[in-house]
Nucleic acid binder design. Structure first.
Ligand SMILES: [Mn+2]
Ligand SMILES: [Mn+2]
Ligand SMILES: [Zn+2]
Ligand SMILES: [Zn+2]
Lengths: 145, 145
DNA sequence: TTCGTTCTCTTGAATGATTCAGGTTTATGA
DNA sequence: TCATAAACCTGAATCATTCAAGAGAACGAA
């Protein structure tokens, strides 16, 4: 009864200073179960779990959870924002130029910032984001065959 | 008279299979003189040189010149597309989180792709794009002072 | 020089992701 | 139980970019 169990999704939300609502629990679960989902996909995942939720609420919740560090937002050029539950480890992504598929790539160097700029122009850099562009297995066989 | 002089902007356009128009010469010059300009800035630079040009024509020309490899497009998350004349050398960028300022960073490793993914997930990678995020000199003094 | 083809440019409308606005409901802790 | 701020709702607005389709112009061939 008094034990502090491994934190549930609800407890994580509360721990981040956010209120616990069915929609936000469902949203965090959806993002974590998914794989770099876009906002529409997240909204439909949330609705599958708890019924109607406005797209607006999804945007607001994603903003709040991103600010709280519970989810991470990535935005490859030319595609809408995508969200993932893997946070705090400065990993990178491969993106398919043809179909937009995204996959994780561990950081080749170490912690963030994982790369030193050769000349930082006086900027104080806090993150090095790497996107590898290419073709996913499916798209490259389609093209070459 | 018969000499093949160092190529002019016009000759470069022709060499890329594009027609030579005042607007496109002006556009290429504008992009080269500028420093990671956005579309509006390019349009106004072009207009300063040759008078009225529709924004649509600017978009189309940028598309054509990008496809031809004469200009390069970058699109940091959260800001409109920017274009530059420095092409073919796989360099990277530092972007200010506060004001959006962009500066060049030479590739730390070598040719494109300058980085090997630790696990490419079967993707055939042709480019590694790196964006260093931080604060420019101006924005960081503003915040810390 | 003239022509025809195709590229380029134009105006005007449409898209689509995201954000803004303002009002209502609800979680939370006092 | 209550007050308050957070969360949520509907509806409208923004903004960069793209789509459409007709008019104009570059340029290689005749
Ligand atoms: Mn990831
Ligand atoms: Mn550059
Ligand atoms: Zn693909
Ligand atoms: Zn700045």
């Amino acid at each position: 009864m008094t034990a502090s169990q491994p934190s549930t999704t609800a407890e994580e939300l509360r721990g981040a200073g956010l209120r616990v609502t069915a929609a936000r629990v469902a949203l965090l679960d959806t993002v974590r179960d998914g794989d770099h989902l876009d906002v529409e996909s997240i909204a439909s995942g949330v609705r599958d779990r708890v019924g109607h939720v406005s797209l607006q609420a999804v945007y607001e919740a994603l903003y709040a959870l991103t600010a709280a560090g519970l989810v991470r937002r990535i935005e490859p050029a030319g595609s809408p924002a995508r969200f993932e539950g893997r946070v705090g480890d400065n990993h990178h992504h491969v993106v398919c130029r043809s179909c937009g598929a995204v996959a994780d790539v561990d950081c080749a160097v170490g912690e963030a910032p994982c790369l030193d700029a050769s000349d930082d122009h006086g900027f104080s850099i806090d993150e090095a984001e790497v996107i590898y562009w290419g073709l996913c297995p499916g798209c490259s066989t389609t093209r070459s065959s």
